[in-house]
Amino acid sequence: MMIRKQDILCLAGAAVFACSPLVLDAYWTDVLNNIGLYAILALSLNIILGQCGLFQMGHAAFFAIGAYTSAILNTMFDIPLLWTMPLAGILAGIFGLIVARPIIHLRGDYLLIVTIGIVEIIRIALINDVGGLTGGANGIFGIDRPMLFGLKIKRPYQFFYLIWGFCAVTIFLFHRLENSRFGRALNYIKDDDVAAEGSGIDISKYKLIAFVIGAFWAGMVGTIFAGKMKIISPESFSFWESVLLFTIVILGGMGSIRGVLLGAFLIIGLPEVFRDFASARMLIFGAAMVAMMIFRTQGLLPPLPRKYDVSRFFSKAEGEQS
C-alpha cells in the first residue's frame, strides 16, 4: 500500500491533537469534547445531507432517540451504558426507516419541512412523558458513567479519548463508505436522481439506507452524550441543535469529511473562543454565514474528487509510443 505525504501529515496532526488534553484545562478539554460530539453527529448527517443531497433538518430527533434509549435502559434496567449503544443505534435507525419511508420521494424544501416537523414531534413527545418513560420536561437523571475496560470514564480528558476515538472510527469507516459503490450511488442521486434511476440505481432504497445509517450513528452518539451529561432532558434535542448540525455540514462543505470536521470546530468552537464578545458574537457569526453563502457556496472545504488507480490501463499504450 502506498503511503502518501498527505496521510503522514494527517497522522501527525491527529497525534498532536491527541496530546491536547495534556496542555488544556478541563474547561477547554470539555469544549473539544463538545466539538467531537457535534463532529460525529454532523458526519452522520453528512451521509444524508452531504452525500445524498437530502435536506434533513431533523437530525436531533435520532440523536434524542439514541440518548433516551440508553438513559432508560441504564436507569431502569441497570444495563451498563456502553452496552446499550448498539440498541440505541438500532432503535434510532428503525425510527429513521419508519419516518423516512413515506417521505423519501419528497424533494428539497418539502423534505426539509417534514423533517423539521419530526424533530418537533419527538421533542414534544418527550416533554409529555410518553409511556411514563421519558420523565417529561425534567428528563432523566442519574445516568451511569460509561465503563470501558473496567475504567469508569468521568473526567473530561477521559471523555476526550472516548469521543475522539469514536470520531476516528467514524471517519475511517465513513471514508471507506464514501469511496465505494454505495458512496458513489449517493452522489449520483444528489447530482441527478432521474439519471441515477435511469442508470439502474434504486434511488428510494439508497436514500432510505442513507437515512438509516445517519440515524443509527446519531443514536450511538446519543449514548455517549447521555453518559457525559448524566442528565438528559428534551431541551438538549431542540430544533436549534438540528439547525447547528445542518449548518456545520453546509458551511464545511457538503459531502466532505474534512469540511464537516472544520465546520464543527468553527460552529461549536468559535463561539467559545469569542465568549468575551458576548452577544455580538452571534451577529458576527451570522454575517460570516451570509458572506460565505454568497462567495463560497460549495462550503469551506468541498469534497476532493475520488482517486482511482487507472495507471495500469495506460502503461501499455505509453510503452508503444516510446
Binding site: S180, R184, A185, Y188, D191, A195, A196, G200, P305, Y308
Partner: peptide, 23 residues
C-alpha cells in the same frame, strides 16, 4: 443528463452499479 460534478469515469461507473453486489 450526466452527473455533472463527477468525472467521466465515475459517470460510467454509475452504469456498472446494477451489476455489482457489494453493500
Amino acid at each position: 443528463r450526466l452527473f455533472k460534478s463527477l468525472n467521466a469515469l465515475e459517470n460510467v461507473l454509475s452504469g456498472c452499479h446494477c451489476r455489482m453486489k457489494s453493500g
